[in-house]
Computed example of a mutant assay.
Amino acid sequence: MRVWAVANQKGGVGKTTTSIALAGLLAEAGKRVVVVDLDPHGSMTSYFGYDPDALEHSVYDLFLHQGQVPQGLAAQLLLPTSHPNIALLPATTALATLERQAPGQSGLGLVIARSLAQLWQDYDYAIIDSPPILGVLMVNALAASQQLIIPVQTEHLALKGLERMVHTLRMINRSRQQELPFCIVPTLFDRRTQASMSTLRVLRDVYPDTLWQGFVPVDTRLRDASRAGQTPSQFDEKSRGVIAYRALLKHVLTRQLAPQAV
């Protein structure tokens, strides 16, 4: 299994869309994919038609055992999605209470890594949709992943979130045995606006070695796919957004991302 985390310390940059778009493309290539919703808002869970406020069980259950994960629990929590090759580990709003519980428990930072280890033989890829806040959930996502994808909205305020994310990655790398490779992905790009154009230039100047040179454009078909509860490529495989994500997936799969100094 290959484990990718999608994270940024700013909301609204396209993390959930990126996670599901990549999962959908992998699934259509015949890969078995598990998507993990670690955001207490449950955007990924809602995307696939489940109510994060109403689910009785979720990824939250994995954190209730003093940092250990009972054998078989991760598989019991999986839910089906619109694609037969994609399974969901859903979120509930109870995840928001973990930060208050974390000081009293040890080993919480490796819960997701231990959970995915139980699914290792059953899936080819795991894609983790992370919350936009540095805490036990993001630490879990980064600790479990082999590669990090950082979507960045092409507008000036998003650059600050990227700076915070790179700083967080620097801290996480100190505790890992090897540095976590990452790829910065410009999203919500609108070439008609000066903000998008200038932000893309800044990204290319400041992060030349870790930036994907393409971009994901603003595309209403991505929003329509979300409303339909389908992956973007299921909904409209020829949309501009899907074409961009297909190019991104090819980049991630074919380029052996070496660890970068941050």
Rank of each mutant, 00 (worst) to 15 (best):
G241L: 02
V202A: 14
L110W: 13
Q121L: 03
R223L: 13
V252Y: 02
R240I: 04
G11A: 03
P84D: 08
A74P: 13
Q66N: 14
R204G: 14
T168S: 14
R192T: 08
I133V: 14
V139H: 06
Y123C: 00
V216I: 15
A158W: 05
L55C: 08
Q121A: 10
A141W: 01
G14I: 01
I133P: 00
L248R: 09
A195H: 07
G24A: 06
R240M: 13
T168M: 08
A75H: 11
S196R: 01
L38E: 02
T92F: 06
W4T: 01
F215Q: 11
A7E: 06
G104I: 00
D39K: 04
M138Y: 08
S19T: 12
P181F: 08
A247H: 10
F182T: 00
V69D: 12
L116G: 10
A113N: 08
P217N: 08
L77C: 14
Q68K: 15
P70C: 11
R114D: 08
V36I: 09
K15V: 09
L79K: 14
K160E: 12
L203Y: 12
Y245V: 01
Q68W: 12
L134H: 08
Q230G: 13
T154Q: 05
L180P: 04
M171G: 03
L88P: 04
T16I: 09
Q256W: 02
V166F: 00
Q101T: 04
S19P: 00
Q153T: 02
L188D: 01
R223T: 14
I20P: 01
G109D: 15
I20S: 06
V242Y: 01
H65E: 10
L77Y: 13
T220L: 12
I20D: 00
P217C: 09
K160S: 11
V111G: 13
I172C: 13
A91Q: 09
L137K: 11
I172A: 15
G14K: 02
M1G: 05
L142H: 14
T17E: 04
L211A: 10
Q213I: 05
W212N: 07
L88H: 09
H65G: 13
